[in-house]
């Protein structure tokens, strides 16, 4: 492969979201963002909830909302496997906002009752992430 571009694939269990050459990949690692340029050393990293940026060209970027997965870097290829991924342009803002409201309520209720609200917390994080990324376009 050329040393200017790297082949990148974004795969979810339901579909292959993106496949093509990119200049740079920035992924949300567990301990901060991970940036991958062409000719990166082989690596496997766990990804959290956040924003995946694919730099297609100097002035063109693709924003993708992802929840949980991992990134695998080979010599000339970056494979991103995630449970859930959505392009910024695909995000249904109304649904994301509803999800945010609902989970906020759930957390408040659980706190009142002293129950565990771990799952609601994650859902809230996901909803907020989607709202944030939908504003990128």
């Amino acid at each position: 492969m050329s040393d200017k571009y790297v082949t990148c694939e974004v795969v979810t269990p339901e579909r292959v979201l993106y496949s093509g050459n990119v200049k740079m990949v920035v992924a949300p690692g567990l301990e901060g963002e991970v940036g991958i340029l062409p000719l990166h050393a082989p690596m496997v990293a766990v990804l959290g909830v956040g924003e995946l940026r694919l730099k297609l060209d100097e002035d063109k970027q693709e924003y993708i909302a992802i929840h949980k997965g991992y990134i695998q870097v080979l010599e000339d290829k970056v494979i991103i496997l995630v449970n859930f991924a959505e392009f910024a342009s695909e995000i249904d803002i109304k649904r994301a906002k509803e999800a945010k409201e609902r989970t906020t309520k759930e957390i408040a209720e659980a706190q009142k009752k002293g129950e565990d609200y771990y799952k609601a917390q994650i859902d809230l994080e996901k909803a907020e992430n989607r709202i944030r990324i939908s504003k990128r376009i």
């Binding site: 567990l30 991970v34 082989p42």
Partner: peptide, 8 residues
């Protein structure tokens, strides 16, 4: 392969 970097 045995030269992977693992994060974390």
């Amino acid at each position: 392969r045995d030269d992977y970097i693992f994060e974390p």
